Amino acid sequence: MIFDTHLHLIDLSALRYPWLGGVPALNRDFSHDEYATQARRAGIEGALHMEVDVDPADIEAETGHVKAQSRQKGSLLRGVIASCRPEEKDFATYLERQRADPFVKGFRRVLHVMPDALSEGTLFRENITRIAGTGLTFDLVVLPHQIPRAIALADLAPGVQFVLDHCGVPDIKGGAEHPWREHMAEIARRPNVVAKISGVVAYADAGSWTVETLRPYVEHTITCFGWDRVVWGSDWPVCTLGGGLATWVAATHALIGGASPDERTMLLSANAKRLWSL
Score class of each variant (00 low, 15 high):
residue 184 M to V: 15
residue 227 W to C: 06
residue 235 D to C: 04
residue 194 V to P: 00
residue 246 A to L: 15
residue 181 R to Q: 12
residue 174 G to P: 02
residue 192 N to F: 05
residue 158 P to L: 12
residue 215 R to W: 01
residue 188 A to S: 14
residue 210 T to L: 04
residue 258 G to D: 12
residue 271 N to V: 09
residue 185 A to G: 12
residue 244 G to N: 06
residue 197 I to D: 01
residue 182 E to I: 08
residue 229 R to Y: 06
residue 197 I to L: 10
residue 232 W to E: 02
residue 256 I to T: 15
residue 263 E to G: 10
residue 180 W to M: 09
residue 177 E to Q: 14
residue 258 G to I: 11
residue 250 A to V: 00
residue 159 G to C: 12
residue 186 E to A: 14
residue 196 K to N: 05
residue 222 I to L: 10
residue 243 G to E: 05
residue 187 I to V: 14
residue 253 H to G: 03
residue 223 T to A: 14
residue 246 A to Q: 13
residue 230 V to S: 02
residue 173 K to I: 02
residue 179 P to L: 12
residue 166 H to C: 09
residue 267 L to C: 08
residue 197 I to C: 06
residue 215 R to C: 00
residue 230 V to Q: 01
residue 255 L to T: 03
residue 192 N to G: 03
residue 183 H to C: 04
residue 272 A to R: 13
residue 184 M to I: 15
residue 163 V to A: 03
residue 221 T to K: 00
residue 236 W to H: 09
residue 222 I to Q: 04
residue 238 V to T: 08
residue 161 Q to I: 06
residue 236 W to A: 06
residue 200 V to K: 05
residue 234 S to Y: 02
residue 179 P to Y: 11
residue 212 E to L: 01
residue 270 A to P: 00
residue 260 S to A: 11
residue 225 F to L: 01
residue 209 W to N: 03
residue 170 P to F: 08
residue 221 T to S: 03
residue 250 A to P: 00
residue 164 L to E: 03
residue 193 V to A: 07
residue 227 W to Y: 10
residue 239 C to R: 12
residue 167 C to H: 03
residue 227 W to Q: 08
residue 260 S to T: 15
residue 160 V to Y: 04
residue 242 G to R: 12
residue 204 A to N: 01
residue 245 L to R: 10
residue 225 F to E: 00
residue 227 W to A: 11
residue 245 L to I: 13
residue 268 L to A: 14
residue 240 T to G: 00
residue 266 M to K: 15
residue 272 A to L: 10
residue 194 V to E: 06
residue 217 Y to Q: 08
